[in-house]
């Protein structure tokens, strides 16, 4: 099974961004999707760094793809989307708007923010030239299995959400701006202070969600570490690791070790909790009753009232 690094969902400074992709070059991952997924206002801050990051990663032997935005409404965003293919690398479609702009015969992939729930959609996307799909994290294992099977027939590789805070919703409204009583156009980049999203708690102080500009994420870090054998048997081609600000290089190595069967998934979970004793994990979308559920023993969340 391969490892893909998904697009960074958060707003990092350009230097931090460059450093992150430089470091990734030496990690045991196969594929890197980069570019701006969440908010078009962030892109100008690091856009000029993208070509160099792409070269560095390609030189290091990684496959590279460029993501589209997840929600495209403005003229400027439509233009950006239309120009995505000009960079000459594969495009990962995260809003269907990107599809008609891509040249016929180009290598295409679909990211987790496009709804692929069934074989009919998979077959149709394959007919459009899509060769890889990272499924929406909401899908249960039974659906993943069916789709991986259908994908194998069509030559479409199926990837699933392997690690990271889950992208649960995207909006036209910026919640970081709203929190600071600003409008979206005058947000003053409030999301920059939260490199992994801002924790959102319930009224009893339970950690629950994380806000990231127009995006809402889970508080928990979803991980497929307990399901790797099952996913592998099901024919899943790759796990997606979603960038986080701390310990990401170690995280990539850890998942590689599990895929290589050097350590067990359970041991890797233990390592994860040692790396960050506050981390709360989930795998409920794959195997539980609800997304937030976790098949392992959960560390007690710290209450913050």
């Amino acid at each position: 099974m391969e490892l893909t690094v998904g697009p960074n969902q958060f707003f990092w400074s350009a230097d931090r961004w460059t450093e992150f992709y430089d470091d990734l070059a030496s990690t045991p991952v196969n594929r890197v999707v980069l570019g701006e997924l969440v908010c078009s206002k962030r892109l100008p801050f690091y856009q000029d760094r993208i070509p160099e990051a792409v070269s560095t990663l390609i030189e290091a032997g990684k496959e590279v793809a460029l993501t589209s935005l997840a929600l495209i409404t403005l003229k400027r965003e439509r233009k950006q989307t239309a120009e995505l293919a000009e960079m000459g690398v594969e495009v990962e479609i995260n809003d269907l708007t990107a599809l008609p702009h891509l040249p016929k015969g180009a290598k295409l992939s679909v990211g987790p923010l496009v709804n692929v729930y069934n074989e009919g959609t998979l077959v149709w996307l394959a007919s459009q030239g899509v060769r890889r799909i990272c499924l929406t994290p909401e899908l249960p294992l039974a659906s993943v299995r069916t789709l991986a099977f259908a994908g194998a027939d069509l030559g479409v590789e199926i990837e699933i959400w392997g690690h990271g805070r889950l992208p649960l919703a995207i909006s036209g409204r910026c919640y970081h701006a709203r929190l600071h009583k600003r409008t979206k156009d005058n947000c003053q980049f409030a999301c920059e202070d939260d490199p992994d999203g801002l924790d959102v708690t319930t009224l009893e102080g339970k950690p629950f969600l994380a806000m990231n500009g127009v995006q809402t994420l889970s508080d928990t870090y979803a991980t497929a570490l307990h399901q790797i054998d099952t996913l592998s048997e099901a024919g899943v081609s790759a796990l997606r690791l979603s960038p986080q600000s701390n310990g990401f290089i170690e995280l990539c190595k850890l998942y590689r070790q599990v895929l290589d069967k050097d350590i067990s998934g359970a041991d890797a979970v233990e390592t994860l909790t040692r790396m960050d004793d506050n981390v709360r994990l989930s795998d409920g979308f794959l195997t539980g009753n609800r997304g937030v559920d976790w098949s392992g023993e959960q560390a007690q969340p710290t209450l913050r009232i």
Partner: peptide
């Protein structure tokens, strides 16, 4: 308030 059809807040909390 979220883009419709692209929100899994409910299944995250309730299944």
């Amino acid at each position: 308030v979220m883009a419709e059809g692209r929100c899994s807040l409910s299944s995250y909390a309730t299944g």
